[in-house]
């Protein structure tokens, strides 16, 4: 019991079975938990029928709240690493091993990045990603090439922080804040698929507001927050 795959799911009845079955069959060495974030469709019913390991939130909390529930589960059950894994099939399980390996070299957060070796395309969709990268670079003097990638792995001391902190969420601004606090963050090249079914709940106005929120947060809020004191990551310090 080392790595927990946290799969936040909101209205993913078309995808959830395919994604979780793939993990169970081909990657039995990892544990997983599905966090159903108060879906209005049959996501929870499907998970129960198939006997998946499920945290079933009775109301919708949003991605941050659902992921945090997964982090609390990871903390409670003593997992050393936790990875966020999309329920819509965008993330590829074959890269989990590479991320885990990189994290085991003493990194706090490792991002599964689409643009370590590959160039970021010059599209409108990537403009926001560039703006967030720029904001992180301006405030931490370090480069994060794919800040909006949702595929991130966290180590034990990050799990403990993210499980309870109000203003830590699985978003780029929290990554920037952790970097400012001295956490070691790195990126590993991965590939991602386009979602095959269902709709993303990030439409154009929502995406724009998301970018604005992230940039304002990174430039004007995270800079002025006093850094979190990070505990030593060695196992002797486990309470």
């Amino acid at each position: 019991m080392k790595l927990l795959i946290i799969i936040p799911a909101y209205n993913e009845q078309e995808n959830i079975e395919r994604v979780v079955d793939h993990l169970i069959q081909d990657y039995p060495q990892y544990s997983y938990v599905v966090v159903n974030d108060g879906s209005k469709d049959n996501t929870a019913a499907i998970c129960r029928k198939r006997g998946y390991n499920l945290i079933d939130l009775p109301v919708n909390l949003g991605l941050a709240g659902g992921f945090q529930a997964g982090m609390q589960y990871a903390e409670k059950h003593g997992f050393e690493y936790a990875i966020q894994y999309d329920a819509d099939g965008q993330h590829r399980a074959e890269y989990i091993g590479a991320l885990l390996e990189e994290c085991e070299t003493g990194k706090d957060i490792v991002i599964g990045s689409r643009f370590v070796q590959k160039k970021k395309p010059l599209s409108l969709r990537m403009l926001g990603s560039r703006m967030i990268s720029g904001a992180i670079r301006l405030t931490t003097f370090r480069k994060i090439k794919d800040p909006t990638s949702g595929m991130r792995i966290y180590n034990r001391r990050m799990i403990k922080l993210f499980a309870h902190h109000t203003n830590l969420s699985p978003e780029p601004d929290s990554v920037a804040y952790m970097m400012k606090s001295g956490a070691k963050v790195s990126e590993v090249q991965v590939e991602m698929d386009e979602r095959t079914a269902g709709v993303s709940y990030l439409n154009a106005p929502k995406a724009m507001f998301y970018m604005l929120r992230m940039v304002v947060s990174i430039l004007f809020i995270q800079v002025f927050r006093s850094p979190i004191r990070l505990k030593d990551n060695s196992p002797e310090n486990e309470e």
Binding site: H165, T166, N167, D173, L212, R213, V216, S217, F220, I221, F224, R225, S226
Partner: peptide, 17 residues
């Protein structure tokens, strides 16, 4: 208030902007 964890960043953005 943010560093005291009394307000979520999402909610503070309005006032900052």
């Amino acid at each position: 208030k943010i560093s005291q964890s009394k307000v979520r960043i999402d909610d503070a953005i309005f006032w900052i902007v």
